[in-house]
């Protein structure tokens, strides 16, 4: 049985495309922030360490929805109020796509930080000592020894981060970005068929999850190539 979508099927598909775009862009940012955060956590500088600790503590202790509201509505107001005080009025109108991407990337960067921290610790320290002993610089050793191996340990955790992140993109609908969830809302407002459209949207999310699980297995097999299995 195929339900009558009243011509809104294409809109849902475009919403799906935007959801995937926001999700992938946010994941990219989260990986960058995660590497940076993991570096900060293992740094010898107490400032970098406490900055990274505050970042992960605060972000993981506050709901995503509140953080999205804070970044999307709070940051422009804060900047405008400050700039008004200093006598240079600046007015900011955040683009929902970038606001959503930046917020989700910022939030899941904290989770990625923990993933990478664990992954870096899983690399045997003897390998780094050996690299230093044959005269590699710290950055070269990082590039040649640590980075190629860190994916193997980080992939299961990053897969989880991605799965949670892509579901969290639904929250971006409250800042008026026409991703999958908001497309469904628009269709519901016009057709008065809430169950039909939200159910179809949920099946889209479910298929993203399903494809992600299959891809993750592929990636893990690729990252683990050449390693011995018990």
């Amino acid at each position: 049985m195929v339900p009558d979508l009243h011509g809104y099927g294409w809109m849902l598909l475009r919403g799906l495309e935007l959801t995937l775009l926001v999700g992938l862009a946010a994941l990219f940012l989260a990986i960058l922030l995660g590497l940076l955060g993991a570096w900060g956590k293992s740094s010898t500088s107490p400032i970098a360490r406490s900055l990274a600790a505050t970042y992960t503590t605060v972000v993981r202790g506050v709901p995503e929805l509140l953080l999205i509201l804070l970044v999307y509505y709070g940051t422009p107001t804060l900047i405008q109020n400050l700039s008004l005080q200093w006598g240079y009025p600046v007015f900011i109108d955040l683009d929902p796509f970038w606001a959503g991407t930046l917020t989700l990337g910022f939030i899941y960067g904290a989770f990625a930080t923990e993933v990478f921290r664990g992954a870096f610790q899983s690399i045997p320290p003897g390998q780094l000592e050996a690299a230093r002993a044959i005269g590699m610089s710290r950055s070269l050793a990082f590039r040649r020894i640590v980075l190629p191996q860190v994916w193997r340990f980080a992939l299961p955790g990053l897969g989880n981060v991605w799965m949670v992140l892509i579901k969290a993109t639904a929250l971006i609908s409250i800042i008026q970005l026409d991703e999958l969830m908001r497309s469904a809302q628009i269709a519901v407002a016009a057709t008065k068929l809430p169950f039909t459209f939200y159910f179809i949207a949920s099946l889209f999310y479910l298929s993203i999850t399903l494809v992600s699980i299959l891809l993750q297995q592929r990636f893990e097999a690729w990252a683990n190539r050449g390693t011995q299995r018990a």
């Binding site: 579901k167 969290a168 639904a170 469904a184 939200y198 159910f199």
Partner: peptide
């Protein structure tokens, strides 16, 4: 289990709160 873990909570919430109106 697969459905509830694989879809966003917001969609589930809308399905129950708004979707129930359809029935």
């Amino acid at each position: 289990i697969f459905y509830f873990r694989g879809t966003p909570l917001l969609v589930q919430l809308f399905l129950v709160y708004y979707g129930s109106g359809q029935f």
